[in-house]
């Protein structure tokens, strides 16, 4: 109960900060818009490649952009944690009766809400530029859930790293090192059958890819619900591992104080 209470209070803190800087959501939408409009137009003709399957590249790309935006954003989840460390906010909470877990879950809760809003906006933008989403509301809801799951998992990872390295520059480097390779080793931009075979194998172990496959499947006609549930299960398991890592990082942080 105490953990839930504390999570709620921490969530309110982060949402208030977001509420005061609503333009931040707009800034975070610049990238997905570029992916959708420029990248989508640039690679319009890849659908002509035999075996690509889909006939509309925007249609193919849109669910990937939704998931990828959540993933990119989550990478930076550790930055405000470093600021909290520098300003003594984390230490203040550590000497209070607050539940340690709420310091992470509060961030995840507010982060998830932000992701949901962002995802909805991207879906609307995609609809405007000509994408369609099959399976109506259910499909889109599942797509957003996949985005939230992958965002929460990598958010935990970023928070854990922040607690371990406690330096913004190092965190930025670590995140950059992870983000692009994982993005390209996924079906975000390219049909799986057309990827080199080693990359296909690698993508099977890529949590971002699980989310894109499940999310895209959910908004494609004739979805394979079994496969989607399987990928979602894997994502949940990955999220648990990342959350455990973040909690351990808290302990390591405290030992270093």
């Amino acid at each position: 109960m105490k953990a839930l209470h504390d999570t709620r209070h921490m969530t309110v803190r982060h949402l208030m900060a977001l509420w005061r800087q609503p333009w931040w959501i707009a800034v975070s939408l610049v990238q997905p818009v570029i992916w959708l409009l420029l990248f989508g137009a640039l690679f319009k003709s890849v659908t002509d490649i035999p075996g690509f399957g889909s006939t509309n590249y925007i249609q193919f790309l849109a669910p990937g952009v939704v998931v990828m935006t959540a993933f990119f954003g989550a990478g930076w989840a550790g930055m405000p944690v470093i600021e909290d460390i520098d300003r003594g906010v984390i230490d203040r909470f550590l000497v209070s009766p607050v539940r340690r877990s709420s310091l992470i879950s509060g961030r995840l809760a507010s982060w998830s809400l932000t992701t949901a809003i962002q995802s909805l906006i991207i879906v609307v933008l995609a609809l405007i530029v000509g994408a369609t989403f099959a399976n109506s509301v259910v499909g889109v809801v599942i797509l957003i859930i996949e985005a939230i799951l992958v965002g929460a998992a990598f958010g935990c990872l970023s928070i854990g790293l922040a607690l371990l390295i406690r330096k913004e520059e190092t965190l930025i480097a670590a995140v950059q090192f992870l983000v692009l390779p994982l993005s390209f080793m996924s079906v975000t931009f390219m049909q799986k059958d057309l990827m080199p075979s080693w990359m296909q194998t690698a993508s099977d172990f890529n949590p971002l890819n699980w989310a894109v496959e499940a999310g895209r499947g959910a908004v494609t006609a004739g979805p394979d619900w079994g496969a989607i549930a399987g990928k979602t299960g894997l994502l949940v398991a990955f999220l648990c591992v990342c959350a455990f890592f973040a909690m351990r990082a808290f302990r390591t942080y405290q030992r270093a104080v």
Binding site: M10, A17, G88, R92
Partner: peptide, 28 residues
């Protein structure tokens, strides 16, 4: 205990009242 560390530990992006409120809330 109450602790006022050197760094202070205030959330600069929140109001004074919000800071005090959150502190009270974590103490139930």
């Amino acid at each position: 205990i109450g602790v006022v560390s050197q760094a202070g530990g205030l959330d600069r992006e929140a109001t004074g009242r919000e800071n005090l409120r959150l502190q009270g809330q974590v103490f139930g």
